[in-house]
């Protein structure tokens, strides 16, 4: 059963033109021209209950406009959004009772209050029954290791602590759906991992549907089986991350340590990029030859001491997709 249904969703903005420079400033004084910007241009997708989906795209691609429409902050220009059985922008106050949202860049907590008092206040805002509140609070604070700073004012928390407090705050009222925007931004490796662990937990153990927007591909790799990619307002890809990697992953690398020196070590289907001191590096494409075929080929001709395959990183793949517009042809 789907929790989010989006059909032909569009959002257009009128943007007034600004001319630059001295003459431009003078032109701005006299005329007012508008251009129509299609921030979101005919998107369709559905998300099933319990899914954990990554929503990716470069800055200004239409990501946050989509999220704002899904959360009821923006009214669409056209198309249809139904989330959790409601139309967000029409029934905002009722609708937001059942969702949670975390914006990594800014906190929803009260700056001068101890964390626990902010949470207490949110309990009243969302009218969480006292028992349920205690239960959730206990579970989240221990999973997120928040006990040590529950009584610290938010303004004196570290970024990682603040993020954990914000995530906890967004979940106290048992939302069906959680929007996570850059939940690991600016954190160190350990803190990132802790947050990912928790996100995975609430998704699998509590069945909370999660829509994650992030620039950190490690988040996506660890958490999302499904990703959607948006650019220039259009949905370019919706599917498994691995499929994307298979299609656009670029070259893989095989590093081989030979047991004895050979004068000539080239093999068909792969390019030798480096050969020095018994160690050779080959580049190969998964469409041309598979890793096992390549290893098979090499081991019939040479004595090999050790080898390893290096996969291209997803970060690079995604960057190439944006920069080279690899997906624009498909849509």
């Amino acid at each position: 059963m789907s929790i989010i249904t989006v059909r032909n969703l569009r959002k257009e903005f009128k943007v007034s033109k600004h001319h630059r420079g001295m003459m431009g400033t003078l032109r701005n004084l006299t005329t007012r021209e508008f251009t129509l910007v299609k921030a979101v241009d005919n998107i369709d997708f559905t998300i099933a209950r319990g899914e954990l989906v990554g929503y990716l795209g470069p800055n200004g691609a239409g990501k946050s406009t989509t999220i704002k429409m899904l959360t009821g902050l923006l009214t669409p220009t056209g198309g249809e959004v139904v989330v959790n059985g409601r139309v967000p922008h029409q029934q905002r106050q009722l609708y937001v009772q059942r969702i949670g949202a975390v914006f990594g860049q800014r906190t929803t907590l009260w700056w001068d209050l101890p964390v626990i008092e902010s949470l207490e206040l949110l309990r009243h805002i969302y009218r969480v029954p006292p028992d349920r509140y205690r239960q959730n609070l206990h579970e989240f604070t221990s999973l997120l290791e928040m006990e040590s700073f529950l009584n610290t004012p938010v303004r004196s928390l570290s970024l990682g602590q603040r993020m954990r407090a914000d995530i906890c705050a967004a979940l106290l009222h048992d939302p069906d759906l959680l929007f996570l925007d850059e939940p690991t931004i600016g954190l160190d490796v350990v803190a990132k991992e802790r947050i990912r662990e928790f996100v995975r937990h609430i998704n699998s153990a509590r069945g909370v549907t999660i829509l994650l927007t992030t620039h950190d591909m490690a988040d996506v790799e660890r958490l999302c089986s499904r990703v959607m990619i948006i650019d220039h307002g259009r949905l370019l890809y919706d599917g498994r991350l691995q499929t994307l990697q298979d299609r656009f992953g670029g070259k893989r690398e095989l590093v081989v340590d030979f047991a004895e020196p050979y004068p000539e070590v080239t093999v068909p289907g792969a390019t030798l990029t480096h050969y020095h001191d018994l160690r050779a590096t080959y580049e190969f494409e998964r469409q041309t030859i598979s890793a096992s075929e390549l290893i098979g080929l090499l081991s019939t001709q040479y004595r090999i001491r050790d080898l390893s395959v290096r996969e291209p990183d997803i970060e690079g793949t995604i960057r190439r997709i944006y920069q080279e517009g690899l997906l624009t042809g498909d849509a």
């Binding site: 009722l94 969702i99 929803t108």
Partner: peptide, 15 residues
């Protein structure tokens, strides 16, 4: 401008 108003809109209480 800072988006803090949006945060209020995300809460189920009279704005």
């Amino acid at each position: 401008r800072r988006g803090t108003f949006d945060q209020l809109l995300l809460r189920p209480v009279n704005i």
